[in-house]
Amino acid sequence: MPTSQKTIRRNTRTLAQLPPGQRGIVRRVTGGGSIHRRILDMGISKGTLIEAVCEAPLGDPIKIKVRGYALSLRKAEAALIELDETE
């Protein structure tokens, strides 16, 4: 189903692209190895609601809110987290 695949891709954005103040729901965490594992351990898995809060003064890393606490991660890592839009 190439069409639906395409649609999904167009709608997919990553946490790195989420503007401050907006929310998204984790569709999946890509990548592998210890980065992947660390992201999972910190409470980011499929279906988790994430809110982007702000960028660091120098533009990277970013601060997010997840499961009621504040977490920071670099944009490179945030790009591994694919989001669905929230209604």
Binding site: S34, I35, R38, I39, M42, P61, K63, Y69, A70, L71, S72, L73, R74, E77
Partner: peptide, 9 residues
């Protein structure tokens, strides 16, 4: 290496 760190209250 990754930077995934809690910002505690």
């Amino acid at each position: 290496t990754p930077f995934v760190m809690e910002l505690p209250p």
